[in-house]
Design a protein around this nucleic acid. Structure first.
Lengths: 340, 340
DNA sequence: CTGAAAGCGCTTACAG
DNA sequence: CTGAAAGCGCTTACAG
C-alpha cells in the first residue's frame, strides 16, 4: 500500500515550511503574502502527485468534521429515504457527508445515537425526534450544535424546525370531500402523540366541526404489522357500512386501507372515496389512482439544509430560531368522486 | 459550552499518566498490570463525569474511523433504502456508522465520491458499482481497503461480492409461466449493461430456449422518467396484442408496466400474467396482488456486512475473495393464471 | 513573505 | 506496575 502524501512530505520534498503549504492549500496564499511563484510550485506539485488532505487530521485540528447526521424514524420509509436523497445532493454540493441513523421511534436508542454522534463530532443534526428526548436536544443546543427538527417537533423545546402544515393538509382534504357531498368521512390514523399526527387529526376534526358533521376515527397501534393493520381496517369498514370517504393519515395506512376496502368488496371511488396523507410513487399507478396530500420533499430537504448550513457557516446567529411551515399540495386523482 | 472531558483532564485531575488512563479505557488494564485499585478509581471517575473519547483523535492515531460507506445507485430506491436499513442495524451492533452516497450510476461522480471518502479514511466500502470504475475499485483493493460489491459486479475486477442469482430468478419465473401454459412471454428490461440486468435477461432467454419459444424483449432507456416508461410499455403491449405474460426486470418497471396494462384496457391476470423482479411492499396491496422474484433483503445485508466485518477485524485474509450468490424467492400471488 | 512551534486528543513503544 | 515522549496530519498564532 503506497502511503498517501502528507503535508509534511510536500513540505520536505519542496523545501518549504509545512505551514506555508497549509496556507496555500487553504487559499490563504494571498492573505499571507506568499509569492506567486511559490504558490504555483506547490499547487503544481500537488496536482502532479494527487494530494488529498487527511480529513481526520483537519477535523481534529479545526473541530469541524464536515459531517452531518440525519436521524430519522426509519431510513427505509418512503418519506425518509426520499428526504435523504435530496439532502445528499445538497450536502455533496457543499462538501458535507451524511451519516444516517434510524431511531425506530425509540427514545433510548435515540439518546444513545446522539451520544455516539457527539463522540464523532458531527457538525450538525437533522432529526425527526421521538417524544422523550427533549433533554438531549436541549443539551445539543446548549452546546452550540446546530439542530433542525423536522416532520414533527417537541413542544416546549425551542429549536429550528421544518415541517408541513399538517393541519391544513387534512383540513383541506376534508373540505374537498365535503364538497363532493360525502357525509360520513372517517380518519384512519396512528395511535401516536407526535405533533404531526395530532395536527392531522385536528385539521380533520376542525373541518368536520365547521360543517357539523360527526367524526369517525380509527386509531391503529404504531407497532402493528401490515396484516394486523389490514384486518383492523377491515373491521372498521365493516362496522361502518355507510362510510363514504376515508382520509388516511399516512401513506402506509392508506396502502393497508386500500387492501381492506378491496377485501370488503367495496370499490374506490364508487363506494368510498380515499385520500392519503403523504404521496407515494405507486399512488399514480394504482387503479384507480389515489389522491394524496403531498409533502413537497425536495423543498423540505432544501429548507432543512439551508437552515442548517446557514448556522454551520455562521451566516445567522446560532441562538436565533428558524421555523419553516411548508404548505402541502392536495393532488386529486381518481380515488374520490362526487356523490349524488 | 462546557468543554468535553479529555483524557488529559482525567489524568491530571486524578494525578495519573494519561497513558495509564488510555490503557484502562481500552481494557488493557490487566495486560499492562495496572492495579485494580487504580483501575476502579479511573473507571469510577469516568462514570461520574460522563467521559466520551473523541473519536476523531482516536481515528487519527489508530487509522481506523469505524465508519463504512454505502455507495448505492440511489438511496431512495426501495431496494437500496431497505438494504441501508438492515445494514444500519448490523453496523450499530458493531460500533460502526454508515455514510451513504448515491452514485446516480455515473462513473465520474462515483470516482469523485470514492476520492472524498478516502480522504475521510472510511474503513470499508459497500458499493453497487456503475460500469467504468474498475480502476478505482482496484486501487481501493490494492491499498488494502476492504470492498464488497453487491447487486452487480465488474467483470474482470476481482473483489468480494454479494448478489442474487439473477439468472435463476428469471429462469424459474419463466419456467413457471410456461407451466401456466403461457406461450408468448415478454421481458421488459432496462437498456443496461450491468451484470445483474444481463443475468436476468439470460435467465429469461435460457428458459424460453429450453421450450423453443421465441423471446420478446422491450428495453427501456435507463434515464426514462415514469411517464415515458409507461407510454413505451403501452406501445409495446399494443403492438403485441397476443402477449400472455410479462416478466419485468425491476419492480419500478413493473409499476409502470402495470399502469400501461391498465391503460391498454387489459386485465391482470385474465388477459396477461405479470411477474416482477424485486419485491415491493405494494405488490401485496395491489388488486390483483403482484407475483415477484424477491431478493431476501435482510439476508443480503447480513452477508454483506459479515464479509466486510470479517476483513475489518482481520478474521480473514484481506486478499482472499468471498462471493455469496443468494437464491431468490419466487413469491406467487394473484397476478398469474393458468391459460386454458 | 516564511519558518519554528504548539496544539487538537488520542495510542503505543519504550524505559524504568 | 507507571510515566515521559513521540507520533497521527493537520491549523494557526507568533516571531522574525
Amino acid at each position: 500500500m503506497k502511503k498517501r502524501l502528507s503535508i509534511n512530505d510536500i513540505a520536505s520534498q519542496l523545501n518549504v515550511a509545512k505551514s506555508t503549504v497549509s496556507f496555500i492549500l487553504n487559499g490563504k496564499a494571498k492573505e499571507k503574502r506568499i509569492s506567486n511563484e511559490l504558490t504555483e510550485r506547490v499547487l503544481k506539485f500537488i496536482e502532479e502527485n494527487g494530494y488529498q488532505p487527511n480529513q481526520l487530521a483537519k477535523s481534529l485540528s479545526t473541530g469541524k468534521t464536515k459531517m452531518i447526521c440525519l436521524l430519522v424514524e426509519k431510513i427505509s420509509d418512503y418519506f425518509f429515504s426520499h428526504i435523504a436523497y435530496h439532502l445528499e445532493a445538497l450536502a455533496y454540493k457543499n462538501g458535507y457527508k451524511i451519516i444516517y441513523c434510524s431511531t425506530e421511534n425509540d427514545p433510548e436508542k435515540t439518546k444513545e445515537l446522539i451520544n455516539l454522534l457527539r463522540a464523532r463530532h458531527v457538525d450538525g443534526y437533522i432529526i425527526t425526534p421521538p417524544n422523550g428526548i427533549e433533554a438531549e436536544i436541549k443539551a445539543l443546543v446548549n452546546d452550540n450544535l446546530p439542530v433542525v427538527l423536522f416532520d414533527r417537533f417537541l413542544p416546549g423545546t425551542p429549536t429550528d424546525y421544518v415541517g408541513l402544515d399538517n393541519y391544513n393538509g387534512t383540513f383541506e382534504a376534508v373540505e374537498f370531500l365535503i364538497s363532493t357531498a360525502a357525509k360520513k368521512i372517517a380518519l384512519v390514523t396512528l395511535d401516536s402523540q407526535q405533533t404531526q399526527m395530532l395536527e392531522r387529526r385536528d385539521g380533520y376534526l376542525a373541518a368536520l366541526r365547521r360543517h357539523h358533521i360527526d367524526p369517525f376515527i380509527l386509531e391503529i397501534p404504531f407497532e402493528n404489522d401490515v396484516d394486523t393493520t389490514v384486518s383492523q381496517s377491515l373491521d372498521f369498514i365493516k362496522s361502518n357500512p355507510d362510510l363514504q370517504a376515508i382520509v388516511f393519515a399516512t401513506n402506509y395506512l392508506a396502502l393497508s386501507g386500500i387492501k381492506a376496502i378491496t377485501e370488503a368488496g367495496l370499490h374506490i371511488p364508487s363506494d368510498i372515496s380515499v385520500i392519503a396523507f403523504d404521496d407515494h410513487d405507486v399512488f399514480k399507478i394504482f387503479n384507480p389512482s389515489i389522491s394524496a396530500i403531498a409533502q413537497p420533499l425536495d423543498e423540505m430537504a432544501e429548507q432543512l439544509f439551508k437552515i442548517l448550513l446557514d448556522k454551520l457557516e455562521n451566516k445567522v446567529r446560532l441562538k436565533d430560531l428558524h421555523k419553516v411551515i411548508i404548505q402541502p399540495d392536495l393532488i386529486l386523482r381518481k380515488s374520490t368522486k362526487t356523490r349524488t
